[in-house]
Nucleic acid binder design. Structure first.
Lengths: 239, 239
DNA sequence: ATTGACGTCTCAATATCTGAGATGCAAGTC
DNA sequence: GACTTGCATCTCAGATATTGAGACGTCAAT
């Protein structure tokens, strides 16, 4: 494989990062592994330290830095949001309701993607909105597959019960009526990461009058399908 | 803050990565955000794409790349291993037994750090060793706090039972006698990440003759303390 | 058909990067 | 204590890699 990108300094800096992937590495070892001149490696490594892409351990060895974890988190978020767009548009059109993707963030859930029903009575949840983990079908789904203790902690003060969460796990989806806001119904299903763990929830929401008092009966199938499409899309873009 | 590292190309490349942290960005937007000349940004961005630190979405916009996730995973592993060393040495000395840290990897657990008892009858588990998730106190601890379905899946074919795992959750530690290997006893406790989730297990292991048929009764306290020290060390190095 | 915005490419000029060699320090050996 | 070795850090003359103005191609809007 041609390893030259056309920008020599970046090629060399990446050689340093690649070498550090194996673990803490002294300057001498970096020189040996990269084949570069010692002052060159020294200067590049210090530049990467300056930008927190690399740091130094107690023995002065170079190690990969925290900034990489920050950038990686942003990269992961990008992929979820990129994949969610078309899936939510399809779901909105199939159901005629607004559709969203939520992620958990501590004691709240955050809307990270949204496709709104364009006309008439509709539930509007702008991207970035933080909602409670104590109410709503998305909260149920984000909680249902947590470990026992976190599940019990999450249920404290919640508008739903352990029995409801057991139902969510059995059926693979959740529904709510007026939990987050009077008059609003919703249906949600889990998005799973490559390891199978629930990382997000796909939801539709709208007025009870239109979604009925059993919104899951009508809409669960397409919501579950949309969530599975998103799970598949994320798995594929890992390859 | 002085933003110049002494290597101009790296400074500029990092400006591009920093800008992309906010999400998919066109070339024009990168030019505006970085203040660099258009061909410069173009060349640097293509070089980062070449090394998979950046990629392009369906609209041709630049996005943070998958290589960052790979490097971040390595960075995380580095920190666990770096923090584990002194903790395991203390634990080995306090108990007189070999001490290890295990992480889960699919259907196996892997020893990522180890401090061996130097003399006499001892249990040796070299770093990198893969062991079963179906036997041993570390397997119990890595499994006990999983969600209900993953917990049930993990119990299939296991040498321990749901009742044993409930005890692990209640006490905060697990013990085993001859599960992984006849004549070997072990005690393990959970290491938790910043979100509180179990990410690794601290263990001691040795002959039943020395550890007794109730190794937890004697050693659980220091194993739990060692695991909590490691949890704290990881939390601190996030700041 | 024309215009404007954007992405991509070229290449002369020069600013940056390189790396040989020097220096400082710590650890090991005698 | 003196000496040697190995490693990290620093300097700076010279080479070259990088820069960015300008050209070109494409596409969407008018």
């Amino acid at each position: 494989m041609d390893n030259s990108s056309g920008v020599g300094v970046i090629d060399k800096a990446v050689m340093v990062l690649d070498t550090l992937e194996a673990g803490p590495t002294s300057l001498a070892q970096l020189v040996a592994a990269t084949g570069l001149a010692r002052p060159t490696v020294h200067r590049l490594a210090l530049a990467l330290v300056h930008h927190r892409l690399v740091s130094r351990d107690m023995q002065g060895r170079f190690v990969l830095g925290r900034r990489l974890v920050e950038l990686a988190a942003a990269a992961g978020e990008d992929r979820l949001i990129a994949s969610a767009g078309p899936v939510l548009l399809s779901l909105r059109d199939a159901t005629g309701e607004s559709a969203q993707v939520f992620r958990r963030q501590g004691d709240a859930r955050v809307c990270v993607a949204s496709a709104e029903r364009p006309v008439g009575l509709r539930d509007t949840i702008p991207v970035g909105t933080q909602l409670s983990m104590k109410a709503g079908s998305a909260a149920q789904v984000l909680l249902a597959w947590e470990d026992h203790e976190r599940l019990l902690e999450g249920l404290r003060g919640a508008r739903f019960t352990p029995t409801v969460l057991a139902g969510v796990r059995r059926r693979g989806w959740g529904q709510s009526l007026g939990e987050r806001e009077p008059g609003v119904a919703s249906v949600s299903a889990p998005v799973r990461g490559p390891s199978g763990r629930v990382i997000a929830a796909v939801s539709i929401s709208g007025p009870i009058e239109r979604l009925s008092r059993q919104p899951g009966r009508i809409h669960a199938e397409v919501v579950v399908q949309a969530a599975q499409q998103l799970t598949e899309a994320l798995r594929k873009s890992n390859d």
